[in-house]
């Protein structure tokens, strides 16, 4: 069975390291916050100017002056801090934020990512994505393996305008966990019940497969 979006987030949560600062992008990455393993302390950074972001507020307690980068109302946790956008991106560019999880339209085998523009169609802008992918030590992409028309989003080379080069370290999809290795995508894990063959068929890029590929544990 391929994973659903929550399960992708759940698998990515296993990558979280104790006592680290993490920036979660919009969409599936936001869900990662729901699955922090026990004993792991994380502070979430949102690039619009908050560190120590908490859950959504209770109904009636929303504060228009307290939002995340997705413009959703949020709360802050004890130890939280608020700051301006230049300080926020100093944390990001200065590699003080250790992990970035973000969505993508395409990822290529050398770690390029495209997630900000479809020429002539979608022109929303890159927001903070280019600063985030240019800097973080660890960048994990959370996305579906294929797009709505069934085409692979795991490619030899991106076809859409790219957001950053040589930056993605790992990709977690509904079918597989892939590492961006020196020579291309290495298949690390497969979704429960999904065969290596099925993953190969859904993937445009070549896969490096070493020995038995284990199933993900959720």
């Amino acid at each position: 069975m391929a994973l659903d979006k929550n399960q992708i987030a759940q698998r990515i949560a296993q990558e979280l390291e104790h006592n680290t600062y993490v920036n979660l992008g919009i969409g599936i990455p936001t869900l990662v916050a729901n699955y922090i393993p026990k004993g792991i302390d994380i502070e979430f950074q949102s690039e619009n100017g908050v560190l120590g972001m908490g859950p959504f507020p209770f109904e009636g307690e929303e504060d228009p002056d307290l939002i995340n980068a997705g413009k959703q109302t949020i709360t802050t946790l004890d130890g939280a801090v608020l700051f301006d956008s230049a300080t926020s991106f100093a944390m990001i560019r200065g590699q003080h934020v250790q992990l970035t999880v973000l969505g993508a339209m395409e990822v290529s085998e050398n770690g390029d990512i495209a997630n900000w523009k479809i020429p002539g169609k979608m022109v929303k802008g890159m927001g903070g994505a280019m600063d985030l992918v240019a800097s973080a030590d660890n960048i994990i992409v959370a996305m579906m393996h294929t797009n709505r028309s069934g085409a692979s989003k795991i490619l030899k080379q991106c076809t859409l305008p790219i957001t950053g080069v040589n930056c993605v370290k790992k990709v977690v999809t509904n079918l597989a966990v892939l590492e961006v290795a020196e020579n291309g995508f290495q298949l690390l894990e497969r979704a429960p019940g999904v065969s290596v063959e099925e993953i190969k068929n859904a993937t445009d890029a070549d896969l490096i497969i070493e020995g038995e590929v284990p199933e993900m544990k959720l």
């Binding site: 926020s88 240019a134 080069v165």
Partner: peptide, 25 residues
Amino acid sequence: PQGSLAERSRAAGAGIPAFFTPAGY
């Protein structure tokens, strides 16, 4: 890029005409 927008504004006010950033390379 959002971080460049922030820093380009800050730089203008701080008397720094230009700077190098990895964002967007």
